[in-house]
Structure formats: structure tokens, C-alpha cells
Amino acid sequence: MKLLLSLLLALAPCFACVAQTNHAQWNAAIEAFESSDRANPPPQHAVLFIGSSSIEHWKSVAADFPEVKVINRGFGGSELSDSTYFADRIVKPYHPRAIVLYAGDNDLFDGHTPQQVHDDFVAFVARVRSFDPGVAIAFVAIKPSMARKALLPKIKQANALVRNYASTQKNVTYIDVFTPMLGADGQPQPKWFIEDGLHMNRAGYALWIALLKPWVDAHGQ
């Protein structure tokens, strides 16, 4: 019995990895994007916002960046590898001029390491650059949310790894929303979030807009 328990514990991380790469769970969301595209073809060479719920919930993103054409293809709960997996369907058809990516938050919550977040971002860059070699890409730093305060050390590590990688790449930019969202005590602040402590309120998005606008305006025109 002890041997069996040991084997199950040893295999548990592998089972988790399988669950975390279950891209099929997002098929309905991706098909909804494709249906919308057929009914109302989005603009070519726009700024593509993609990633998890912080992007999906950003319903005002087009109005918030009025100087550029914008497409929102966020799907809540997704991880970095999901955006890479579906890139042929929700990146390639648009030939975006620039990409704003927010992901990695759910990855860490689901047990990925900071190094895996880095590696998955590198894979995303390689995938989209395979069909749009010159596309500019901004990685929005993983935010310090109230609900995931326990992950703060891993968030810092993941952000640092991505920031260092971005500094070595052409047209890959790390946008630091992490530091401005912390309080003077270095801790997450409730003023940026709705009641769940995870998703942002309008004040949180207003901060992001101010931090992203110079990059979006520069690369989206």
C-alpha cells in the first residue's frame, strides 16, 4: 500500500501537466471568435489584445485606445500555452501590427513554475513570429492580485525571467504593471480589484491604460 501511494504521489505532477495542457476545453470560445469574425470581419493589421480574463473582461479596450484599431481575443481561465496553441486561429488570420499579451497568472496558480512561464512565453513569440516575423509583442507583467497574494514570490520570479528575455529580443517589450500596482508596503492593493480580489475594476484598467498607451500608440499606427 505504501508503495502504491508513493507511486501515485510521484505521478501526480504528470497528471497535473496533462490537465494543464487540455487545450480542447477552449474550443467553444475559439469557435465563437471565428463565428464573430465571419459575421463581422475584424480589421487587418490591428493591435491584438490576447490572453486570459484580464483581457477578456476588458470590454472597453477599443474605446480606451481610440487612436489605433484594436481586436480583443482574451479567453478567461486560459494559460500562455493556450494562446500559442490557438495562434493559427486567433492570431494569424488578423496579421496584427502589434500584440498585447496578458497571461501567466493562471499558469502559476495551476502549478507551473516561473521558468515554465518564461518558456511558454518564448514559445508564443516563436509561434507568432513564424507567420508574422516583424510583429511587435508586449508582455503585460503578471499582476499582484489580492486573491493570489501567496503567489507573489513566484510572480516576481516569472516577471523577472520574462523581463530579462524581452530585453534581449527585438520588438519584444515587458510592460511593468506589477510594480505600480503594489502599495508602499510592497503588497497587493485592494483598490485595483473588484470584490473577488482577482479581476480588476475600472481603476485597475485606468492604470493599465496609462502604462500601455505609449507602447500601443507607437506600435499600432
Score class of each variant (00 low, 15 high):
Ser52Ile: 00
Asp196Gly: 12
Ala46Val: 07
Val135His: 12
Asp196Cys: 11
Arg148Met: 05
Arg163Leu: 05
Asn106Thr: 00
Gly111Leu: 10
Met146Glu: 10
Asn106Glu: 06
Ala32Asp: 04
Ser60Met: 09
Ala158Asn: 06
His95Ala: 15
Phe33Trp: 08
Asp88Cys: 00
Trp26Leu: 14
Gly77Thr: 06
Pro66Arg: 07
Val125Glu: 14
Thr168Lys: 03
Pro66Gln: 12
Gln116Tyr: 03
Gly204Gln: 09
Asp107Arg: 08
Phe109Cys: 10
Leu5Thr: 07
Pro93Val: 08
Ile137Ser: 02
Val70Thr: 12
Trp208Asp: 03
Gln189Tyr: 11
Val140Asn: 00
Phe124Tyr: 14
Leu198Gln: 08
Leu161Asp: 02
Thr84Gly: 12
Gly51Lys: 09
Ala160Cys: 04
Tyr165Val: 07
Ala29Val: 09
Gln115Phe: 02
Ala218Phe: 11
Gln189Asn: 13
His23Gly: 03
Arg38Thr: 14
Glu34Ser: 07
Arg73Val: 04
Asn72Ser: 13
Ala32Gln: 05
Asn27Met: 09
Ala203His: 15
Lys191Cys: 11
Cys14Glu: 13
Arg148Pro: 00
Gly76Asn: 02
Asn72Trp: 03
Pro13Ala: 14
Pro133Val: 10
Val125Leu: 13
Asp37Ser: 04
Val70Leu: 10
Glu34Arg: 08
Pro144Ile: 04
Gln169Leu: 00
Ala160Trp: 00
Ala160Lys: 14
Gly183Phe: 04
Ala63Thr: 01
Ser78Thr: 02
Leu48Arg: 00
Ala19Met: 12
Ala87Phe: 08
Ser145His: 04
Leu7Gly: 12
Arg127Tyr: 09
Leu9Gly: 15
Pro188Phe: 01
Asp217Trp: 04
Arg163Phe: 00
Ile137Val: 13
Gly197Asn: 11
Asn22Pro: 08
Ala206Pro: 05
Asp37Trp: 03
Ser54Pro: 03
Pro42Ala: 07
Met1Asn: 14
Ala28Trp: 01
Asn171Asp: 06
Thr179Val: 08
Lys2Phe: 01
Val172Gln: 04
Thr168Glu: 07
Ala184Glu: 10
Arg127Gln: 15
Ala62Ile: 06
Ile55Tyr: 01
Leu48Cys: 07
Ala147Glu: 12
Asn22Tyr: 10
Ile194Lys: 13
Val91Lys: 11
His199Ala: 02
Ala12Leu: 15
Ala136Glu: 05
Val70Trp: 01
Pro93Gln: 05
Glu67Tyr: 00
Trp192His: 12
Ser53Pro: 04
Asp64Met: 04
Val140Thr: 04
Ala63Gly: 08
Pro214Thr: 13
Ile137Pro: 06
Val117Lys: 03
Ala46Phe: 03
Lys2Pro: 03
Gly197Ile: 10
Leu7Asn: 14
Ala28Met: 07
Lys149Gly: 13
Ala147Pro: 09
Arg38Met: 11
Val68His: 11
Pro133Ser: 12
Gln187Gly: 09
Tyr174Gly: 07
Glu56Phe: 04
Val172Met: 04
Met181Cys: 03
Leu151Lys: 13
Val177Phe: 01
Asn27Glu: 14
Arg73Pro: 02
Leu4Thr: 14
Thr84Leu: 13
Leu9Asp: 14
Lys59Asp: 13
Leu182Glu: 00
Phe86Asp: 05
Cys14Trp: 15
Trp215Ile: 04
Leu108Lys: 03
Gln20Ser: 06
Leu8Lys: 12
Asp196Ser: 11
Lys170Gln: 14
Pro114Ile: 10
His118Met: 09
Tyr205Phe: 08
Gln44Ser: 12
Thr173Gln: 01
Asp64Pro: 06
